[in-house]
């Protein structure tokens, strides 16, 4: 397997394989929590902390943890780091904690985190996993913050709580609800696809290390 450079891993995590806009993972908390930019930023940073810590620990322990208990161990470690993130956000940024609600503890079973744990951390070095966790976390944070900012602007006329469009543009509370979130997410993905020239048949950019790569029709150089 060809090793990717750190820059390549960073670029993939944040841009070309962005978990929210390209891989379409972690959409449930995105729709529920990212109703304003600060909530999206808070949840994203908590996810980054968990992804980064798990990257280091799981890749360091990949030869220690027997295959048969890999998933239970991953769950225990994920739950530990999520609980730590939960305590930190609750104690140090209570305003953000109130906005995120129960979705922070649910990060322990977030598909972004579990998918990374299964397909990347158990197959790569500690340094690569740490960079990858950071990149995917920052990509997820950027996605959640952008989604939250757009919904907050259209739905409330504010950005990070500051009145920007209040009184200028009529507020549309629909965008603060899940259907409005789905609409905004779809439009952002469409715009990004248009800008990057990506189509439905384009590879997701993460073929190496992907268990489904052999049979994937979107794989670089694969069946079409």
């Amino acid at each position: 397997m060809n090793r990717k450079s750190k820059r390549q891993i960073l670029r993939e995590g944040i841009f070309t394989a962005n978990p929210l806009f390209i891989s379409a993972m972690g959409i449930c908390p995105a729709l529920a929590v990212a109703t304003q930019a600060s909530n999206g930023l808070g949840l994203g940073l908590a996810a980054t902390l968990v992804l980064f810590s798990m990257g280091i620990v799981l890749s360091a322990l990949k030869r220690v943890i027997p295959y048969g208990v890999r998933i239970p161990c991953t769950m225990v470690i994920a739950a530990t780091f999520v609980s730590i993130a939960d305590i930190i956000v609750r104690v140090y940024i209570p305003a953000v904690y109130a906005g995120i609600g129960p979705y922070l503890p649910l990060l322990a079973v977030n598909c972004v985190i579990l998918e990374r744990a299964e397909f990347f951390y158990t197959r790569n070095t500690v340094a690569d996993s740490a960079v990858h966790g950071l990149a995917v976390g920052l990509g997820y944070t950027a996605g959640l913050t952008l989604l939250g900012a757009v919904r907050e602007l259209i739905g409330k006329g504010t950005l990070f709580g500051a009145p920007i469009l209040s009184g200028v543009v009529p507020q549309t509370p629909l965008f603060l609800l899940a259907p409005g979130g789905m609409l905004v997410l779809g439009v952002i993905i469409a715009i990004l696809n248009k800008l990057t020239g990506r189509s439905a048949g384009s590879p997701c950019g993460d073929c190496e290390g992907c268990r489904s790569a052999a049979g994937c029709t979107k794989r670089k150089g694969g069946r079409s």
């Binding site: 220690v64 295959y67 048969g68 208990v69 239970p72 161990c73 470690i77």
Partner: peptide, 16 residues
Amino acid sequence: MRSRPLQSVLTMAMIC
């Protein structure tokens, strides 16, 4: 790779 049950249990317990 098959691991022994005792090794799995001990690893899991240690991680917990």
